[in-house]
């Protein structure tokens, strides 16, 4: 029973983490993308005043990155999904890009 539970937990954790890691693979595999992503994030946080602890990087492609911004405070926190194109200065809401 313990053995089954152990492997079920491992599989659940893998099922959650592997897709996230796949979405972030360029951040580790491509130094150029990593540099652009860092610059875009720093620029946007400087412009918007977001706190680093409120930003979660979700995915990175060659030309943009997707972040979740969740300003933490007491009570329910509103969460926003934003796209940060590397070649633009303004973030775009994920919904409006469709």
């Amino acid at each position: 029973m313990q053995q089954w539970l152990f492997w079920i937990v491992v599989l659940v954790v893998l099922a959650v983490l592997l897709p996230r890691l796949w979405a972030l693979r360029l951040l580790y595999a491509d130094a150029d993308v990593r540099g652009k992503a860092r610059a875009a994030l720093e620029r946007t946080m400087e412009d918007s005043g977001w706190l680093p602890s409120d930003v979660l990087v979700r995915s990175v492609t060659h030309d943009r990155m997707r972040v979740d911004v969740r300003p933490h405070h007491r009570g329910t926190d509103a969460s926003s999904c934003l796209l940060l194109p590397f070649e633009q200065t303004k973030p775009i809401f994920c919904d409006s890009s469709r």
Binding site: S48, G49, H72, H73, A78
Partner: peptide, 25 residues
Amino acid sequence: GVLLIAGPFGYEWQYASELPVRRYA
């Protein structure tokens, strides 16, 4: 609205605030 804070601050300010917190500008 949001709460803008100028200067270095810790998470206890976010805990005390009912508003989202951003850096002052």
